[in-house]
Design a protein around this nucleic acid. Sequence first.
DNA 1: CGCCTCCGGATTGTCAACAATCCTACGATC
DNA 2: GATCGTAGGATTGTTGACAATCCGGAGGCG
Lengths: 265, 265
Amino acid sequence: MKACFPRGSATFVAACPPIARTGLRRSAVPMVERVLSLAPSLSRLPRVTLSGQVAGAMRDAVLSGLFRPGQQMNEADLATRFAVSRGPVREAMQRLVQEGLLVGHPHRGVFVVELTEADLADVYLAREAIEGAALRRIAALPDRAALRLRLAAEAERMAEAVAAENWREVADADLAFHRALVDAAASPRLSRMFDTVQAETRLCLHLLMAGYRSSAELAAEHRRLAALATGDDLAAAQAELGRHLADPIHILRRIGAPGSGASAP
Amino acid sequence: MKACFPRGSATFVAACPPIARTGLRRSAVPMVERVLSLAPSLSRLPRVTLSGQVAGAMRDAVLSGLFRPGQQMNEADLATRFAVSRGPVREAMQRLVQEGLLVGHPHRGVFVVELTEADLADVYLAREAIEGAALRRIAALPDRAALRLRLAAEAERMAEAVAAENWREVADADLAFHRALVDAAASPRLSRMFDTVQAETRLCLHLLMAGYRSSAELAAEHRRLAALATGDDLAAAQAELGRHLADPIHILRRIGAPGSGASAP
DNA sequence: CGCCTCCGGATTGTCAACAATCCTACGATC
DNA sequence: GATCGTAGGATTGTTGACAATCCGGAGGCG
């Protein structure tokens, strides 16, 4: 989905120096040298365009919190930063607007989205809708053994990260776990919709809590979820998922203000 | 959501003559004359840009079947048809790509999406996920009386259309019913996701069956759904919704080839 | 005969400049 | 003193031209 660009676009320009420009020119990297090295299967190679690279870089920049919420994204400024014309920047920004990371006001500019508490609750409502449907779909699969191993492995990865107190890794493992769950449903549209809300989730995490805290329960929850998702009791799995996704809302409502720590599935 | 453009963008250029151009120039319609007449509330006025108008026109054109599935959308050609430059056309096409109506292949062009039978099943899977979540959400609402009236009215509208064998009107009523259901959940993300799958639904309808047939059961189903959705038995509502949305898949699987008639919720 | 190479046309991607729009602040008027 | 009207500056929207890419077929070679 999402045209034919790779889903997890790599970081091309993480931090953008104001004047000095990093790579990202087609003259420097001839288009002919495709990214042959990391093509996983023998399907269509992902043609790379400047727009796509700029979109990826900007997505990473926004998700990493390099731009504050509500901040305006200046076209000309970004264009000079990336050493690119305004065209690709415009296209990239529009893509991120459609993904929900930016909001665009015609004739005024695009801004980093400001997610309210209501938005956070809505994000998790949408996630429950998507992941719940994925659970239902998974329950109808003939072979769930491979998925069980996969989810268990992700849960272990998270447990180790929690033990090592590597919160960045915890967040990644969390995202990977839920993505694996949704992708297992083999529904392009569920996966596509999940892409959007997962990006918003990352935005919430970074903007509202800036990391993971008090995550003792997290790994255990994911272990349970891995078992239930590939088990035979669909209702129990749904209930566990509901509890799991309701958690951050409760926590957020309890702590109220941002800055303090919180766990987030 | 979706920036601040109106959701159901009106038809600006329904059929586009090859050379002679209809309106759609900013010189012809001074930007100052905003669409004050049909602004429902006193919120932000929707700024109109060429890109947005072109996107609306192209969306209508694709959904109305003016472009065959798989057909390439030529930028220059469309630009001359709309009497605009290629820039706005590019932006509009990218927007429709994100909406799932077109697919883009970098350096090759964008094409009208070709929905397979698997895609149709996937669309209805996604719809069940979204509308099921909406049902759950509605069940938690304090006051469902207004919604009950609204849904019942839509169901009646459909019943009359079925009686009159006005299949175009039946389709519109169907879309309106399900949109009202989802919007009642008051979840921006559910509504946003529903926008996309509903557009794909319309595409399916037009491309696979080109109209409604054998819809005797349709109105009754929607009446039941209206009652159950605003009733107290959530499980029953979910079950009815599942049956309702599974219908077209069964029918399509039975008839196999397109062209023959089918009902579609 | 099949395959590879190369070329031409068509199409898309990108660029830099122009025009329209918006926001802010300043001054005039009541 | 407050409100309205109006320039100024900055930003976005749009345009037309240039460059890169892809697809088709003609031609040569094994």
